[in-house]
Amino acid sequence: MKKKERADFILHRLEELYPETPIPLDHQDPYTLLIAVLLSAQCTDARVNTVTPALFQLASTPEEMQNVDVEAIKEIIRPCGLSPRKSKAISELSKILVEQHGGQVPQDFAALEALPGVGHKTASVVMAQAFGVPAFPVDTHIHRLAKRWKLSEGKNVVQVERDLKRQFPEEKWNKLHLQIIFYGREFCSARGCDGKTCEICARVRLPL
């Protein structure tokens, strides 16, 4: 298959498999989504979802969170890993949101990425899932599958994101990045597929 044919097939098949794409991280608004995405770094969404209820019961707005002791935050989010760094980031970004953004999560990539603990991937998820702005967050699943499906040879997420944006319509990005994640978890995990055995891997390797 040529790259365009692979992309078209993947887009069509993923739409068949995942016509609905619920956001994996439980949240109530852009702020709680931002915190959940920050916590998901090097942690599963499932584990984050077991931790955030207690955290958001303690504080669910920047105004509330800025007044919570960092040690209290750290104790609650400990199961997510990297708790010293994440708890400090949660506290500091909450103060910044209150002081500089009126307690609101900014709908702007640069402003989001300026927040402590918020990189481009986290900002992309928030922009896509909270505000509906076209973005293509690249996580480990998407990076792996983009290579297996011969959509990108990028060595880093920046290159992979650029390649995927070129190959798929902008109006599909927000849904497609979730569809790829769902497929990677269900059928094409790092250990569950060798890049040849799952349905899409096998299909995209076929000659014309």
Rank of each mutant, 00 (worst) to 15 (best):
G103M: 13
D139F: 00
R203V: 06
L145Y: 03
V138T: 02
Q100A: 11
H143Q: 05
A59P: 10
T32C: 09
P53C: 13
K3T: 15
S124Q: 03
A72T: 11
E15A: 13
V157C: 07
L14R: 12
G102D: 11
R47E: 03
L55M: 11
F56V: 07
R148A: 05
L176M: 15
L97G: 12
P134V: 00
E75I: 08
V133L: 04
R6S: 08
Q129E: 10
S91R: 09
H12C: 06
T140L: 01
G154P: 09
F109S: 11
Q66V: 11
L17A: 07
G102V: 12
L176D: 05
G192A: 02
D8A: 15
A59I: 15
Y183E: 07
G154R: 10
E20Q: 12
R78C: 02
E71N: 14
P207S: 12
Y18T: 00
H12I: 07
A89K: 04
L14K: 10
R13N: 02
K172A: 15
Q104V: 10
S60C: 15
D163A: 14
E71C: 10
F109W: 07
H27D: 05
W173F: 15
H177D: 14
P116M: 04
L145G: 00
L206T: 13
K196I: 01
I23S: 05
T122E: 02
S60V: 13
R191W: 04
P53W: 10
K172F: 15
V160S: 10
V68M: 13
L33W: 06
E92Y: 01
G117R: 05
S189Y: 02
T44L: 06
L208A: 14
M1K: 11
G184V: 11
E92Q: 12
C198N: 02
R6D: 08
V204Y: 01
Q179N: 14
G132K: 07
L145V: 02
W149C: 07
M65R: 12
A114K: 10
E199S: 08
G117N: 03
K196G: 00
F56K: 14
V125P: 03
E64A: 15
Y183C: 06
P137E: 03
I142Q: 01
V204P: 04
E16C: 07
P106F: 09
I180F: 11
N156R: 06
S83P: 04
L82R: 09
S94V: 04
A89W: 03
I23V: 13
L178I: 15
A123H: 01
L93A: 08
Y31P: 01
F182W: 11
I90W: 06
S87M: 06
S94K: 01
A46S: 09
L112T: 09
T32L: 08
L58W: 12
E75M: 05
W149R: 05
D139G: 02
Q66T: 09
I181Q: 09
K74S: 14
E63Q: 15
T140N: 00
E92R: 08
D69N: 14
L164P: 13
L115S: 07
A202L: 06
P134K: 05
E153V: 07
Y31W: 07
R148T: 02
C80W: 02
K4Q: 15
F109P: 01
V126F: 05
C188L: 04
Q129K: 06
N49K: 10
